[in-house]
Design a protein around this nucleic acid. Structure first.
Lengths: 226, 226
DNA sequence: TTGACATACGAACGTTCGTTCCGCTATACT
DNA sequence: AGTATAGCGGAACGAACGTTCGTATGTCAA
């Protein structure tokens, strides 16, 4: 059993909660005096005393002689919110449109402009692997046409923009002969391409390499069930 | 076309990049002097001058007379990293184990203890809806047994712990008679329960309400393809 | 040339803010 | 009783840090 939360005094718990809220609102940590004011501690030395207690208990880190040199580490008991210092473990990715069987993917204009903030979604950075976020985008799936890729309607697909693929990649391809977009595993076999559905019981399709336009590589899929 | 990045001087771009890195490492913003030191500006007034430029350009916010009273707002051009101030838009959720057809879900001991940090995963808060993060957990899917729920091997399923369900919820249920765990949409029909696969072409199964133990409600599914 | 403006420098000033020290109280232990 | 020990308060000190001001350089237009 780990150190119990009850080891912390009322004031110490209050300090942690205040720090959390303060950092969310201000974007930087509070001063000792601000903490004291909020938690009803009338002396900076007492705040300092309790902060050091929290450091000992593993909830905080401090940097000496630095104003606002505080940071939360690990989880705040009872809230399970993540530590505040890891602010960039999430990345914003533009949600550029939809993907459906009957239409080509519409990529953002390749003019290097920025997207509206409204159409950005937050994605944990680890879902992007080591890919440059600048070439990653997201699409929502419209219709049931991606079911053989184990992807349902309204799923969000995270893609990296690329025109080629390696064997085994899951790619978004446009098939001009069928006027159809589809998500499949990509295997080049001679001058043909085998497109393998993710669903193990479904049969692959074979197309000419020239009739298979790769538009992106699927990095991950996010589904909100409700 | 939005304000172009090129409107910013070399120094201003450097300041933004430095702030980003500094905040990631330290957990709090840098001082004017620290910025100057890093960017090769030998005068605090010049740093101050350029910071105000960045405020005008919409990249920064400042709080007067507050040490380290800086925060990044919006996106940093070229990196597409999200603004640092929104530190808690992601939540840590315990990854408590696996889900497979042939075994019951093993929930964490209900003793209210905390989990090892190692087994926490980052989830965008919006995937949790309004659910209390304290009752949310994650499982990785083992085997292909959840294919009829449109869920593949190695997918991560985010669940809320609950023993009952409403019609239309996607739930994790344990079927004692079959010794099997499955993920299905839940519909109570009299004293029977209809368990509907997510895959639209698959047939539902019907079980006695008493032979259907709900263990949790599925909130979302995350799949890493690569 | 002159003047307006943007950018840059350095020094001095004054506030912000962490640190330290001394004293007080309550509880527990010897 | 005496004495640690934990917790709190207040005040003062000094370092950290933002702000301001005087000045200098370069560009551009009148």
């Amino acid at each position: 059993m780990k150190k119990a939360f009850s080891k912390l005094s009322e004031r110490q718990q209050k300090i942690l909660r205040f720090m959390q809220n303060y950092m969310e609102e201000a974007g930087y940590p509070p001063t000792i005096r601000e903490i004291g004011e909020d938690t009803g501690i009338n002396s900076t030395s007492v705040v300092n005393y309790n902060l050091n207690k929290l450091v000992d208990a593993g909830y905080l880190e401090r940097t000496d002689k630095v104003s606002r040199g505080l940071r939360l580490v690990g989880e705040i008991p009872g809230t399970r919110k993540k530590k505040v210092i890891q602010a960039t473990q999430t990345t914003q990715v533009p949600l550029v449109g939809h993907i459906a069987a009957g239409q080509p993917i519409q990529l953002p204009d390749d003019t290097g402009q920025y997207y509206d903030d409204d159409d950005m979604i937050d994605v944990p950075a680890n879902l992007l692997g080591n890919n440059d976020p600048a070439h990653v985008f997201a699409l929502t799936v419209r219709g049931d046409s991606m079911i053989d890729a184990m992807i349902a309607e309204n799923d969000v697909v995270i893609l990296r923009e690329q025109r080629t693929a390696n064997n085994g990649d899951m790619v978004a391809v446009w098939l001009p002969q069928d006027s159809e977009t589809t998500l499949k595993y990509f295997y080049k076999e001679g001058d043909k391409v085998r497109l393998q559905p993710a669903h193990p019981t479904m049969e692959p399709i074979y197309v000419d390499a020239k009739n298979c336009e790769v538009h992106g590589k699927v990095l991950s899929v996010i589904r909100r069930v409700h």
